[in-house]
């Protein structure tokens, strides 16, 4: 089964069909101008990113001289050596991987478990459940009441604060619910006749048939978990539980504080810390950069899934 919206993907799909009308001069000019502007636009995104990538490989003298956009005077791996020597980084990397891995699996499964009964129109109380869900999409208690809740649940400074509060999202439930509805009823009925329970049907029929939707939810949640820094900032003060994002934040804020004091002695520290900053940035985005080209299709079709419902 494929995502029903995949064919609507904005990738591909040339609209010119059949009769080819002779290109007028105006059309040619338009096409050239169009491609030139889009190229400039793309460069505005790519050049700064490249600048960061290559700066992370610049030696500390090259960094303090600046004076380059595309290629520094001197390359070196010192920044990475300094970062890798730090056991705190490895720990943060481990926390990031753990929170993303555990978070994605539990979130996707939890949402699927809730979405399955909701996908059945005969479910008693369905109206109440979906009203509750919609309320959660539009109203929230905000930062302070949520903080007090997490605190009273004893989740401050625990690993579980990364997992439990983000188990559920009604938005994702809607996406899964719509997908589950496309599974033909006859499949479920024949399993029921063979004596399968609802649990069994869900686990052995619905879940395996819904892999594309589950993958989409998992990917979005994965990016969110990897990038999430607010949870740590709000609820975690124990450095042993810091993920990469929070560690990077600390490095950045310290360097900023040093630069605002403007002392001469700070300049030297600043240059080294800038190298460390750049290398940490690279390590933090690497997983996303590696996965991105392969999974981009899912991101795009996933956005459509959500949008169709709206």
């Amino acid at each position: 089964m494929e995502l029903n919206t995949a064919q609507k993907s904005p990738f591909g799909g040339k609209r010119k069909t059949g009769t080819k009308v002779r290109e007028t001069k105006g059309t040619r000019v338009f096409n050239v101008v169009n491609i030139v502007i889009l190229t400039l636009f793309t460069l505005i995104i790519v050049v700064p990113l490249w600048n960061i990538v290559i700066s992370s490989f610049a030696s500390s003298t090259a960094l303090s001289n600046g004076n380059f956009i595309f290629w520094p005077q001197q390359l070196s791996l010192d920044n990475y050596r300094a970062v890798f020597r730090d056991p705190g980084l490895w720990r943060a990397f481990f926390i990031s991987v753990a929170k993303t891995g555990v978070g994605v699996i539990t979130h996707t499964l939890f949402c699927a478990i809730v979405a399955y009964p909701l996908s059945k129109r005969r479910l008693r109380g369905r109206k109440l459940y979906s009203t509750m869900g919609i309320i959660t999409m539009f109203f929230s208690g905000g930062m302070i009441p949520t903080y007090l809740l997490i605190k009273s649940l004893g989740m401050l400074n625990t690993f579980w604060v990364y997992i439990i509060p983000s188990l559920f999202s009604y938005y994702d439930v809607i996406i899964l619910m719509n997908f589950f509805r496309q599974v033909p009823d006859s499949l479920e009925e024949s399993a029921k006749i063979d004596g399968a329970s609802d649990f069994r049907v869900f686990w052995s029929i619905i879940l395996p048939l819904s892999k594309p939707a589950l993958a989409t939810i998992a990917l979005f949640n994965g990016v969110w978990q990897w990038n999430d820094f607010m949870t740590t900032k709000l609820y975690v003060t124990n450095e042993g539980l810091y993920p990469l994002q929070m560690r990077l934040y600390d490095i950045i804020v310290q360097a900023q504080a040093a630069s605002t004091t403007g002392l001469k002695a700070q300049v030297a520290i600043n240059t080294t810390s800038r190298g460390v900053q750049l290398a940490t940035i690279m390590i933090t985005i690497l997983p996303i950069l590696i996965l991105y080209p392969f999974v981009q299709r899912y991101f795009v079709s996933g956005t459509m899934l959500g949008a169709v419902k709206e």
């Binding site: 478990i113 009964p117 479910l123 509750m132 929230s140 809740l149 559920f168 869900f202």
Partner: peptide
């Protein structure tokens, strides 16, 4: 429908605890 309802239960509990209690807050 007890099987279906028991699958729904964790979601309902989650919404009450993590969404409605903060709204009350």
């Amino acid at each position: 429908q007890w099987q279906m309802q028991s699958m729904m239960l964790p979601g309902v509990i989650f919404m009450i605890v993590f969404n409605f209690i903060p709204i009350y807050g």
